[in-house]
Design a protein around this nucleic acid. Structure first.
Length: 580
DNA sequence: GCCGTTTTCGGCCCGACTGTTTTCAGTCG
């Protein structure tokens, strides 16, 4: 079951879409969109709020608050039902087709009675669309192509895939003569968990050679559009890449603009308007005189708007503008803050590399400490026994402090741990006496994902209450794009973590990124501590930490919030939990 | 429909590109 907030947000978004499709007031539609986002991101459950409490949510006024109450009380909203009755659900789905927006969707429905993607494809094959006003052969072709894209991909790729491609493109374009600066922006710079398309920004006085080099890159399969300021392509990975070329003195304004997010940009531009200024990708301008005020760096742009520079990870309109105005932006954790990794595997279970290689690679990363946490016996396929685990522990003790780690006195401190399995009833693999021998225990759910909400919640809370469980590993077990997170009452779990001194993992594997940014934000309000871990099963996986840190930053975490940035003594004290 | 260091009414982010247009609407980010 989704949180009430998510259901209400989806309903408000649907209402906004229906207003747009029916040609309603565009500003009114936008307000519903803004309210949908605000409700989705609100910390308190809307089903527990009265009208007054609801109206404290930004962009929720009397009218929308009443609709939310109506939904919570009765399960539906009459105003939404009225529009649903006028517009078949299929018409709304048409707007998911690239190049087909609300206006065209309404036109094909009203003129031709089309209310599904299949009917639309048929109509195009029969050349019936081109007779409509504003439609022509090219429009038909574009829509048909859009339908193919919609059916084939569906869109977003993993953060690591997009990062790799973007870094290749930046390297290639940086080598083109006349390219003065080049970087990626957009959701990738903000570190979102999946990427819909890549935005590349170049500063240059001569765009043509850059645009040409861009369209000739080997992985480009199609050029969608091209001008002297902007070019868009599709790549073999099903990922679109947009390239914008701006004058060098516009770099800061352009970087700010193309980093987004859209909602953050709207907020910053609104601030500009209130100061009789205009903010675009070319700079911050005085409206009356047209004079450019600043444009060279992001810092100048924000400063002139009365704001400190805001880290890209925070630019989602989740309170960063208000925090900036109060001087209360968090000092976000960085990869350099990390002193160790607290969840890793070796070839004793399902890892690929032996303990020695993993430890050596960890030392090379400059860590001060490193935990080996192989699987415990309840994951039967891992064939773990007490003897094998104790033999590994003896080897860990031998190797402790023997790997020189740069910039630190003494060698890499090795911690011997395990990744326990949280059983259906919340119990873990070993009895307390055996668990007491570990330096730390991660505990994770690996099966029985579909127990009811109450059972799953109890299960996780019970794991937190185990005095030997230090970290809940990949807390929701979601796999991005493949498996949803378990349906537990996460707020209850977060409260249990805070109460028992159990940390929540931010699993850095790009398939997981679990907890996700929004859940981190909620957990943080409970006073929970976090561990950003690679869950490495091979040496190269240790470097996935960058994605975990990106996610932690999106969750507003500081080094203080993350236990594996702490000095070893403080970490070990935390791991003693509530035990005497 | 929401909101207010101009305002309780009158605003509401800005520009690039495309395809259809004889000067602009729609879509996208």
């Amino acid at each position: 079951m989704a949180r009430s907030n998510d259901e209400v947000a989806a309903l408000l978004q649907e209402y906004a879409d229906l207003i747009s499709i029916t040609g309603g007031d565009a500003f009114r539609a936008r307000v519903y969109e803004k309210a949908a986002r605000a409700v989705g991101g609100h910390h308190a459950d809307v089903s527990t709020l009265d009208l007054k409490g609801l109206q404290e949510i930004p962009n929720v006024g009397k009218s929308i608050a009443q609709k939310v109450r109506e939904y919570v009380d009765s399960g539906s909203v009459s105003a939404v039902e009225e529009l649903r009755a006028r517009i078949p659900a299929g018409v709304r789905r048409l707007t998911a087709i690239p190049t087909l927006g609300p206006k065209k969707a309404m036109a094909v429905y009203e003129e031709l009675g089309i209310s599904s993607v299949d009917e639309l494809a048929d109509a195009i094959h029969e050349e019936r669309l081109r007779d409509l006003k504003g439609f022509g052969p090219k429009t038909e072709e574009n829509i048909l192509h859009g339908i193919e894209l919609l059916r084939s991909s569906g869109g977003r790729v993993r953060l690591d895939v997009a990062t790799g491609l973007a870094e290749d493109i930046v390297a290639a374009l940086s080598a083109v003569p006349g390219c003065e600066r080049c970087t990626y922006a957009g959701s990738l710079r903000r570190g979102r968990e999946t990427i819909g398309d890549i935005d590349i920004l170049v500063a240059s006085r001569k765009p043509a050679p850059i645009m040409r080099a861009f369209t000739e890159l080997p992985y480009v399969t199609e050029v969608i559009g091209t001008g002297d300021k902007k070019t868009s392509v599709r790549t073999g990975k099903g990922l679109n890449v947009d390239l914008r070329v701006v004058p060098t003195d516009s770099w800061g304004a352009a970087l700010q603009y193309f980093t987004g997010s859209k909602v953050h940009n709207i907020r910053t531009r609104e601030r500009a308007v209130h100061q009789k200024l205009k903010l675009s990708e070319y700079g911050l301008f005085d409206v009356e005189s047209g004079d450019k005020i600043v444009s060279e760096t992001e810092e100048e742009v924000y400063e002139r708007l009365g704001l400190p520079w805001i880290p890209p990870a925070l630019r989602e309109d989740r309170g960063e503008i208000e925090a900036g105005l109060r001087g209360a932006l968090p000092d976000l954790v960085t990869e350099a803050d990390l002193r160790g990794d607290l969840h890793t595997h070796t070839d004793l279970t399902d890892g690929l590399a032996p303990l020695e290689e993993m430890a050596e690679a960890a030392a090379a990363r400059g860590y001060a400490y490193y935990a080996i946490t192989d699987h415990a016996p309840d994951l039967a396929m891992q064939r773990m026994t007490d003897e094998r685990m104790l033999a590994q522990r003896a080897r860990v003790r031998e190797l402790d402090g023997t790997y020189p780690t740069r910039g630190r006195r003494g060698g890499l401190r090795l911690l011997h741990g395990t990744e326990l399995n949280i059983g259906p009833d919340g119990r873990v693999d070993w009895p307390d006496e055996f668990l007491a021998g570990f330096d730390l225990c991660v505990a994770s759910v690996h099966s029985h994902f579909n127990q009811g909400r109450e059972a799953l919640t109890r299960r996780l809370v019970r794991a937190c209450e185990n005095p030997y469980v230090n970290i809940i590993g990949h807390p929701t077990t979601r796999l991005i794009g493949r498996r949803p997170g378990i349906d537990a009452d996460l707020d209850a779990v977060f409260a249990a973590c805070a109460r028992t001194g159990t940390a929540l993992e931010v699993n850095a594997h790009p398939d997981r990124l679990d907890l996700r940014d929004e859940d981190i934000l909620r957990a943080r309000r409970h006073g929970v501590r976090f561990a950003v871990n690679s869950d490495a099963h091979a040496v190269p996986h240790l470097a996935n930490m960058r994605y975990g840190i990106a996610t932690a930053r999106r969750g507003w975490l500081t080094a203080e919030d993350v236990i594996n940035t702490w000095p070893e003594r403080r970490l070990r004290a935390f791991l003693r939990k509530t035990k005497p």
